[in-house]
Design a protein around this nucleic acid. Structure first.
Lengths: 180, 180, 180, 180
DNA sequence: GATGAATGAGCATTCATTCAT
DNA sequence: AATGAATGAATGCTCATTCAT
């Protein structure tokens, strides 16, 4: 939201006044771009959250398994929306989509808590330190995903990178919490 | 860079006009705040880069070892400059310190390349895909470090988190490249 | 002049762009609407002015008689042009018809001067104060007429009100100048 | 309210930006000018309304007497606020003082109704036609007062004109309603 | 002729920057 | 040195006007 309407107009090859024929305000222009991907995004995340909740009861939880849900979601969204997804995650400061990134952080945190809990063989709740740790890891994971989106335009490369990126975290987190 | 000069002046207990007696522009004010930590930061990074270069010749490279240099550097800077470091890494969009972050990314990349090279038993240069991968990982690592700085004010907690964060990456990366 | 061209076009059932095929500007559109009534108006006023000039020579001047010319003129115009007359007298701020009202003021002033002159038994010219007074009364009379036009859509009611309105002024002015 | 801030600033010999040091918005600038006179104005009108209400019960109502209250009020306000009063009555379209003029019209109507009622010897309520008539007269009277304010800068001349203007209406209205 | 998309000057407002005091 | 009033360019947005179709 920090780009000026004049600049947006210019880089779209139109005049600023003309944008207002199609979008009543800067906010509505932003909405039109981001809304569709945000809706899918929200829905996917809600599904993943439920999967993770139920999965906890009867299956061995594994970080790779859970993460792969996020991965396929992100990749699916990216293949459909690409630019819009990136805008939503990295340029929505000051708009109502500001929270999009933190919602993904929360979901990641939700998953991490369950994964870590299992790694620790269910031995009680996480310590204060562990909580700070998973909070930070969740934020970092999401931040890294945004970077990958920002820097890659081709869906297959993106898929590969996200895949390997999340593998690094799965392995690393498993190692870390086994040690703790 | 998004706070207004009036606000900055007010919260510093001076008048906005008077700031211009000491700093020719908002940017130079920003410089003055960030410059010292930036210099230390640059110097440290240069030292680390040399250590890593020479270390390659006669020691078994290990990610944790290398990373721990970054870790101790970051933590040392943090303990000295705290606020300024955070400003440099997280509020410098639009200033010339935007590059500070990317310099750290480059150094991280430099280290990662060596680490990966050794993991692969020196068997030739990295593939295109591997290059994209380490590039992305380097960015992600740094982005995560910035988050940790942003969210933690206490040096010891910070040290712990950075430590564990880098451990996750060391382990994860080692696993990943052994598999590849 | 404050309605937007889009609104004008829409309420006329045409497109805004197309108006410019017929009228070079908003102002000329305004002209086209107001011009006919303005011409009649100007002509009528010129006739009245002559009547009043000549009438002075051989008839007892009486305000009601003179005013009734204005009255019948206004009412005739109203019955022919209604909307346009109202636009001319009440929405022409910023256009060249702003003067339309002041022309009517001048004519009214012209009449009032003669009426007052006779009331005073031709005893020399009006005093400074009396001049200011008739000037003001002329403006007020016209302003009131505009209000009546603005608020009434039906010709007969309008005629009645204008009639009674001018009667009030005739009587009041006669009383006032007899006292002075 | 239709003058642009740039124009206002220019004619005040300052820059548009600087006005905002003193007034948070165009509306507040307008308020600062008009508020004081509006408060007095409102208070005076409320007092007059009460006077007229009670006066009806035990005194012979006379138009000149009632009008002279309005007169002295307007003149008093004018002598104190002059320019502001004119702005309030003639340039407040689009501001919250838009109603100022119509409040004065209402008060005038309130007075006229009582005056006419007495002239008619209390013989029942006014006819539809008479109602339209007094409504129109009330508006006209106020409109004329605004003109006098607009065109006169000197308090004593103003007082005289308002005095004589209202006399014209008193006499004229009395004549008219005696005839009806 | 008619359309409506496009233009660009203008509006109220904000803010980095300047400068008389 | 320090103040804070003043400046003017930039912002989101509106609207008379133009022009390709």
């Amino acid at each position: 939201m920090k780009a000026s309407m004049r600049r947006i107009a210019q880089s779209a090859g139109v005049t600023s006044g003309n944008i207002y024929r199609y979008y009543a305000s800067k906010e509505q222009l932003f909405d039109a771009i981001v809304q569709p991907v945000y809706e899918q995004y929200t829905e996917y995340m809600s599904v993943i959250r439920q999967d993770v909740s139920f999965g906890c009861l009867n299956e061995p939880p594994d970080a790779p398994g859970y993460f792969s849900k996020i991965e396929s979601t992100i990749v699916k969204l990216f293949k459909t929306y690409s630019g819009q997804l990136m805008i939503m995650l990295t340029h929505s400061a000051g708009s109502k989509y500001e929270s999009a990134k933190s919602e993904l952080v929360e979901l990641t945190l939700f998953i991490l808590e369950r994964v870590v809990f299992k790694i620790k063989h269910d031995e009680g709740s996480l310590t204060v330190n562990e909580n700070a740790l998973v909070q930070m890891l969740a934020s970092s994971i999401v931040e890294g995903l945004c970077l990958i989106l920002r820097d890659n335009e081709e869906g297959d490369i993106l898929q590969n990178l996200v895949d390997q990126y999340l593998f690094v975290y799965s392995e690393g987190i498993t190692s870390l919490f086994k040690k703790l």
